[in-house]
């Protein structure tokens, strides 16, 4: 099976620090992949190289056989990729509906934008707060709004950076459910810290450590791997 997202030798250096070091990564169609690793392992930097928010200093990124290395974020997004950033990136001064409409309009055009907006609002149970300015919402709600922005674009590849961060237990469970649903139509990459959450959604897990891939296995194998425990506890491997 051909991969839809691939990196070859991807490297990102900040001055003398190599945050991502020669990473080869492959994602299959409709796959759900979790990226985990301790703080500073390079997960988010790797993620930003995929989305175009950072221009990698070396290596290549391919999305559906097209080389997207160094593309601007808007061009990457236009390929049909939904991106959720680490800190909820939403338009605080605008109502929930407007936030989602703007995303839907870009993908679907004027005619269908309204319908796509409504269905995203329904799906994420945002109806009661649809006309509230996003800045007035709780953190969990804002996370949901951002997810609404992503799904209204009907992407075939979704990149989520810490979708469960700062959410209550109930919200995390709901998020896991939503991700499962989304996975029916789209491949998903989730960058996450929360092991509980990973366990509830993951199939295959890639563990980052010091800018490199440490292990890439199915979730149970990874959880029982002593090396993974060690890096999480800060021990040297």
């Amino acid at each position: 099976m051909a991969s839809i997202l691939e990196t070859r030798g991807l490297t990102m250096q900040f001055g003398g620090v190599t945050a991502v070091d020669n990473v080869d990564f492959k994602l299959q169609r409709n796959e759900l992949r979790c990226l985990i690793g301790p703080n500073g392992a390079g997960k988010s930097t790797f993620f930003k190289c995929l989305t175009g928010q950072l221009k990698p200093t070396g290596g290549h990124v391919f999305i559906e056989n097209e080389e997207t290395t160094g593309w601007d974020p808007h061009a990457v997004s236009r390929l049909g990729i939904g991106i959720k950033t680490q800190v909820p990136s939403v338009m605080d001064g605008l109502p929930v509906r407007e936030n989602i409409w703007l995303a839907a309009y870009r993908t679907h055009g004027r005619e269908r934008a309204r319908h796509a907006t409504d269905s995203a609002i329904e799906r994420l149970a945002l109806r009661d707060i649809a006309n509230t300015a996003v800045g007035r919402l709780s953190h969990g709600e804002r996370q949901r709004v951002e997810l609404g922005i992503v799904i209204s674009m009907e992407p075939w590849l979704i990149l989520l950076d810490e979708p469960a961060a700062g959410m209550t237990g109930e919200e995390v469970a709901r998020m896991a459910e939503i991700i499962g649903e989304l996975n029916a139509d789209a491949a998903i990459v989730v960058v996450e810290h929360d092991m509980q959450f990973i366990r509830s959604i993951a199939k295959k897990v890639t563990v980052f450590n010091q800018g490199r891939i440490l292990v890439e296995e199915d979730v149970d194998t990874v959880m029982n791997d002593p090396r993974v425990r060690d890096v999480y506890l800060g021990k040297k491997v």
Partner: peptide
Amino acid sequence: SPFGRIAVAIRENETRVELMGYDV
């Protein structure tokens, strides 16, 4: 118009508008 609504969105959060696929 959509142009104006997107302009306001850019004021609110440029990164997000870019990630939506608009050329800011």
